[in-house]
Design a protein around this nucleic acid. Structure first.
Length: 457
RNA sequence: GUCCCCAUCGUCUAGAGGCCUAGGACACCACCCUUUCACGGUGGAGACAGGGGUUCGACUCCCCUUGGGGAUGCCA
């Protein structure tokens, strides 16, 4: 049997980070098993679904390289088939028409709540045959009244759900449209889905769906209910927590590789491995290794991972990532400096926007001193430093040699290290907050470095 | 209220009855390195929610309590 998984977002909002993680797990599992990973847009909620959200969801999945293996299936296009299935159940006596109005049912629930009971449909039309003519009705599934509906959940283990807790739920609305329960079951079956991987907020829907599978004569797929992601305070992830949409993380300057790795480790692990690239993940990923407890978002760890991935990238690739944050055109020499300087900068900053800011020192072709730099220069012994500059001029332009020259100079003059290094940094890049002087000299290059130094000393 | 699910350091997690003096990672603290800021290195602090069982022996199995999450829609 070939494994088929699916991601089924409903276009009522942007792609939630939790949904993105579900997509990751679905795709990884399918690839691990040599199966297929499909996608379906659950747009049966006509009130809230929008085409714009569909676009947004696809863009986010695209960014993360989590696009389905085949073109998207739109649930709304299968309405005819859903209806046909409901009619079949009706004809077989496995479902029935209910003529109760929404108001009537609301009142029923109100009374149940007043009696401290679990609000549930009371089966008032289950056995009635005195159907009124020309009145709107919904179609409800005739569910099992007693016993348990059970399944072996791949992540949660064996679950027994008492049938007394499940009412005769609606499968076809009064306007003839299918509800979610009917639509998922029908579509998952029609798409050949073998493993339903989704958030554990669907555990309560599962027994209903199993009943539907059975009533329809369909094979029941395997289920894997993974815990939801919570915010840093342990509460449900919401907009209050900042980022909830996958794309928010792109906007904040995270690398997709880092986000994917982070999502992977949220609720799943393989021994002590932390940094796992996608290819390794395919080999290692098993649904059964997903944790049962919910995970809290920890932005610090994401930051760390981002830095790890940044350090692995080529200067060219890093430059491409930070370009959007630079908001300026680069001169040829600036680009050259950036390419040389980025590997050093990346040791200091984990996030793209911060890195871009740090890269500022290499962008300008002419130096502009900030306040601190001006102070360091004002305090400096310019005559002595001028001697250093001419020594540097005679030194082979290699980091180690330059460093040796500077250290030797410091030793023989007896000057304090910072009294040498700080003014040098100031002269070189306009701020004392910069990488090591010898690193700066290399990045900026011999000619330009000497120009800048001689301008001050 | 009722039902379902969950429960190891601050956070992500390892742990499938003796390997646990509970391991790793992020964050934190100290020291080292050092040219500011970082990187790196070494070390430190830090958890089995509580109570009952079962067992020669429980982080691991069972029950209860507590806490958290979810469901209880003609939403998905």
């Amino acid at each position: 049997m070939t494994v088929v998984t699916r991601i089924a977002p409903s276009p009522t909002g942007k792609l939630h980070i939790g949904t993105a993680r579900t997509a990751l797990f679905c795709k990884l599992f399918a690839q691990h098993m040599g199966g297929k990973y499909l996608g379906r847009i659950e747009d049966t909620d006509k009130e809230r679904s929008t085409e714009e959200n569909v676009q947004l969801i696809e863009q986010a999945l695209d960014w993360l390289d989590l696009q389905p293996d085949e073109p998207w299936v739109y649930q709304s296009k299968h309405e005819a088939r859903h209806k046909e299935l409901a009619e079949k159940l009706l004809a077989e006596g496995k479902a029935y028409k209910c003529f109760a109005t929404a108001e009537e049912l609301e009142q029923m629930r109100e009374e149940q709540r007043a009696r401290n009971e679990n609000p549930m449909y009371d089966n008032r039309w289950r056995e009635r045959t005195d159907h009124p003519e020309g009145t709107a009705y919904v179609v409800r599934l005739k569910t099992d009244l007693e016993g348990y509906t059970s399944w072996d959940d791949i992540v949660q283990g064996h679950i027994d759900y008492p049938n007394t807790q499940i009412d005769d739920f609606i499968i076809l609305r009064s306007d003839g449209s299918p509800t979610y329960q009917l639509a998922v079951v029908a579509d998952d079956h029609d798409m050949g889905v073998t493993h339903v991987v989704r958030g554990d907020d669907h555990i309560n829907n599962t027994p209903k769906q199993i009943m539907l599978y059975k009533a329809l004569g369909f094979d029941v797929p395997h289920f894997a209910h993974m815990p939801l992601i919570h915010g840093e305070d342990g509460k449900k992830l919401s907009k209050r927590h900042g980022a909830v949409a996958a794309m928010d993380f792109k906007d904040m300057g995270y690398l997709k590789e880092a986000l994917v790795n982070y999502m992977l480790r949220l609720g799943w692990s393989a021994g002590d491995l932390e940094k796992i690239n996608y290819e390794e993940a395919i080999k290692l990923f098993e649904l059964k290794d997903i944790t049962k407890s919910p995970a809290n978002m920890d932005i610090q760890k994401l930051n760390w991972l981002n830095g790890e991935y940044l350090k692995d990238m080529s200067p060219e690739a890093i430059l491409e990532e930070i370009m959007p944050y630079l908001n300026t055109d680069l001169s040829t020499s600036a680009k050259e400096r950036l390419l040389k300087g980025l590997p050093g900068l990346v040791q200091r900053e984990n996030l793209l926007p911060n890195l871009a800011k740090a890269a500022d020192i290499y962008i300008a072709d002419s130096i502009e001193l900030n306040e601190q730099a001006a102070q360091k220069l004002a305090d400096a012994d310019k005559d002595k430093l001028a001697e250093l500059v001419s020594k540097l001029e005679q030194t082979p332009w290699e980091e180690d040699d330059l460093s040796a020259t500077i250290k030797g100079f410091v030793k023989e003059t007896g000057l304090k290290m910072p009294m040498v290094m700080m003014p040098l940094r100031a002269a070189l890049v306009g701020t004392p907050q910069a990488p090591g002087v010898s690193e700066l000299l290399i990045v900026i290059g011999k000619d330009e470095s000497l120009n800048r130094l001689k301008a001050q000393f």
